[in-house]
Write a protein that binds this DNA or RNA. Structure first.
Lengths: 191, 191
DNA sequence: ACTTTCGCTCAACGCCTGTTGAGTAAACAA
DNA sequence: TTGTTTACTCAACAGGCGTTGAGCGAAAGT
C-alpha cells in the first residue's frame, strides 16, 4: 500500500469505491443511496466516482455483479445445494435483492437468475409437475432469504442453524415425490 | 356526482388522489413516485395532495393501509387460508410489498404482519418445531407472492390455477407431520 | 532536469423534488 | 343580495441530486 505504481493505486481506489457502493446499496437500496455518501465512505471526491464508473447506474451494475463461484457452495446437503444461506449474505447479493422490487434492471437480473435456477432444478426432478415443484421450491428459498436477512422475522431469533435445517428438511421432502400425500382434511387451521 | 355537497366533493377528490397514489406506489415504489405524478393522474394540483394528506410519507401510509377484511378470504382450502393469492393482488398490498425492502416504515409494517401470521399459524400446528415450520411456510408464501406477482417468473406462465394449487398442496403436506420423512440420500441434485 | 501524464479535488450547473403561502372562484349562510 | 367559508390552483422557494469541466500536484517518461 505504501509503494505502489500509479495504476495499482488507482485500481485500489476503485475497489474502495466499489466496496463502499456495495455496502450502501445493500443496506439502503439504489434510490436511497447518494453518490456523495458512497464517496464519503470511500474517502474520495464524488466526481471521482463518476470518473471511475461513469454513472450511478453503471456503478450499481458493477456493485451487483455476483462472483462467478457463487453457485459453487460445496455441500452434500440438499438445502445448501439449493442455495439456502443461513449465514450472512454477500453484499453483492444483498444489494441486488434489496433493489429487485424497485429498480427495473435489478428486477430483470433477479428474474433471469431465478428462472435459470428453476430450469436447472427441474431437470433434476422426476414427475409430471416437476417444473412447478421446482418453481415452488425456488420461490420458497427466495421467501426464506427475504424473511431472514431483510425482514428479520422474530421466529428466526434463537433458532439454531440445525433447528432451521431440520425444519426445512421436511419442507423439501415433497421434492422427491411427484405426488405428495395431501391430507383429505387439511391440518387444523382456524379462520 | 353532479349534485353533491362541498364535503362530499372533497371526500371524492381525496379518494381519487388515494387511488392514484396506490396505483403509482404499487408499480413504482415509494422513491420512484413523485407527488406531481400522483396529482397528474388524479387530475389535481400537487399542492392539493399536501392539503389532503400532509406529506408524501403520510400519503404512503394512507395508501398502504390494508382493508380490515383482508384476512377474511373465506375458503376451506389450506393454501388460500394461508393467504396465497393466485389472482391479482389488491393495490394496497402491491404497494406495501413493493417498498418493503427499501422503505423502513414499509419494512416494519410487513415484519409486523408476517410475525403475526407466523404466531397464528404456530398455534394451529402440533409438534416440537411447530413455530419453525410455520415460519418456513409463511416465508414460502411470501416468496411465491414475490416470484409470481413481482418478478413474474417464467414457470408461472401457462400454469393453470389448478396445477399451481396441486403443486403447492404437496409443499404444505409437511405441515401436518412434526417430522417429515427426510430421504437418507436426498433427491438427485447435481452441482 | 524538463516535460508529459494522470489520479484526484474543487466549484459549479441544471434539474427535479417535497413543500409552502397567497390568491381565486364557487358553494354556503344570512 | 351580501358576507363568509373553503376546495382548489398558481407560483415559487429551498435543498439535494447526478453530473461536468477546469485545475492542481505528484508520479512517469525521456
Amino acid at each position: 500500500m505504501t509503494e505502489t505504481s500509479r495504476d495499482a493505486k488507482r485500481a485500489a481506489t476503485a475497489q474502495r469505491i466499489l466496496q463502499a457502493a456495495r455496502q450502501e446499496f445493500a443496506s439502503r437500496g439504489f434510490d436511497g443511496v447518494t453518490i456523495r455518501a458512497i464517496a464519503g465512505i470511500a474517502g474520495v471526491d464524488p466526481s471521482l466516482v463518476m470518473q471511475h464508473f461513469g454513472s450511478k447506474a453503471a456503478l450499481f451494475t458493477a456493485a451487483v455483479q455476483l462472483p462467478a463461484d457463487n453457485a459453487q457452495v460445496a455441500s452434500d446437503h440438499l438445502l445448501e445445494v439449493l442455495g439456502v444461506r443461513l449465514d450472512e449474505l454477500p453484499s453483492e447479493t444483498r444489494a441486488l435483492v434489496r433493489s429487485m422490487l424497485t429498480v427495473p434492471e435489478a428486477e430483470a437480473s433477479m428474474r433471469e437468475y431465478l428462472n435459470e435456477r428453476v430450469e436447472n432444478l427441474t431437470t433434476s426432478l422426476t414427475g409430471e409437475d416437476a417444473r412447478l415443484r421446482a418453481l415452488v421450491t425456488v420461490s420458497g428459498i427466495l421467501g426464506l432469504t427475504i424473511a431472514q436477512h431483510f425482514l428479520k422475522l422474530q421466529a428466526f431469533e434463537g433458532a439454531s442453524r440445525d433447528e432451521l435445517l431440520h425444519a426445512m428438511r421436511g419442507w423439501t421432502a415433497f421434492l422427491s415425490a411427484s405426488e405428495a400425500p395431501a391430507p383429505e382434511s387439511p391440518p387444523v387451521i382456524e379462520s
